[in-house]
Amino acid sequence: MVSEAGASEAGISEAGISEKGTSEAADALRRLDEILAQRPKPEQHLYSYCTERLTELRDRMIETGADRARLAHVNAIISVVMAGHFPLGAVPWEELQKARGWLAELVSPSDLQP
């Protein structure tokens, strides 16, 4: 874990992710919304974009020593997005919708402004 001062330098918010992190989360959320809007057959590159943003967010959280519960939260979202990208059978749309909700919790409304 980083020190309180370190956390401040990294811009870690109360939610446990940095300001930069919330912008990555917001970008991922936009992509996830596009995926959901294109149900049942979204463009595959959307999954990649979404995953990229989420893994950047995850890596930043690891580097800055974010709260483990928050990290697990983000990892769960990554798992579900990958499940949509590389499904074993049917795409788990219900779970993707849930993951959208979990991701939205990390993003403030202002981050979603274009």
Partner: peptide
């Protein structure tokens, strides 16, 4: 518990997307 296809081909692409550290 598996969530998706974790075989070599998807994992190659997931590696490109930064999933694996």
């Amino acid at each position: 518990k598996l969530t998706g296809d974790l075989s070599q081909l998807p994992m190659t692409m997931a590696m490109c997307d930064g999933v694996m550290r």
